[in-house]
Design a protein around this nucleic acid. Structure first.
Lengths: 132, 132
DNA sequence: TGACACTTACTACGTTTGTAGTAAACTGTG
DNA sequence: CACAGTTTACTACAAACGTAGTAAGTGTCA
């Protein structure tokens, strides 16, 4: 499931709080984003068409809820990035990240700790991958 | 500098070997990608317009060379990803990466090592960031 | 020198994306 | 109930993208 830039904004609002109305989403968009109400509706319609969002009515009003999970959206976005920018392998990405000057010492340390505290917690989600 | 999916393919070929002809690029595209010669020309033209590639003639033939570096393209793509999918912060991305089941134990270990062997190598590139 | 192959320059065209507008339906309120 | 504001349904439209076609020029070899 691939999201466009604008769709990410909407999904981010939805993940933050749902179900939500279009108006509610408008209220939670970052301040720089000033979209017409109908723009948000259009984006929601496209997300529904894609199967990333579900809509249901409460009286006259539409409520929206994410179907695509943030986790899966992230996974998929990361995969796309890795595919075209990092030879399709996570290794080069990691290497780049670790080498990147954007990485402050604090972040570097955080990463290191995250690595240590996560020896092999995962395991059961193998087939949950790449869907949606 | 933002690249589209198709443009990444072309840039990847160019970074791999340059200067290159359009024909040469065609030859180095991944096997699944079967573009008409003119498609590659079109993409190159768009990349030139964006300032990511430079073209010069040798006799009748056009040679192409990347201006945008792979490093910068990666940095920028990563920033875009982080911006919409990870709250604009590298921390959550790292956390996600470390937690991701896509990360094999081997990769995890590689990461760990990369972290160790890169204590604070960088430093002089502070203003090289976010340009291009 | 003419035919063939390759290159270039220019144009094309459907789809996706960003960003809305409009008209009609609905709802709450004086 | 009439009016004002809200919501919906439908449509719009330019820019970006993916993908290529065509015509005209050039080099080469028999």
């Amino acid at each position: 499931m691939k999201l466009t830039d604008a769709e990410w904004q909407v999904m981010n609002c939805l993940w933050e709080k749902h179900p939500a109305t279009a108006r509610g989403i408008a209220g939670r968009l970052p301040p720089q984003v000033k979209w017409a109400y109908t723009t948000i509706r259009t984006l929601l319609a496209r997300l529904i068409e894609k199967g990333a969002v579900r809509e249901y009515k409460e009286g006259n009003t539409s409520l929206y809820e994410p179907i695509l999970t943030r986790e899966n959206a992230r996974r998929s976005a990361l995969k796309t990035l890795v595919d075209h920018a990092f030879d399709g392998a996570y290794g080069p990405l990691m290497h780049f990240l670790v080498n990147d000057p954007n990485l402050t010492p604090k972040q570097r340390q955080a990463l290191e700790e995250a690595l240590k505290e996560q020896p092999e917690k995962r395991g059961g989600k193998e087939n949950d991958r790449d869907n949606q």
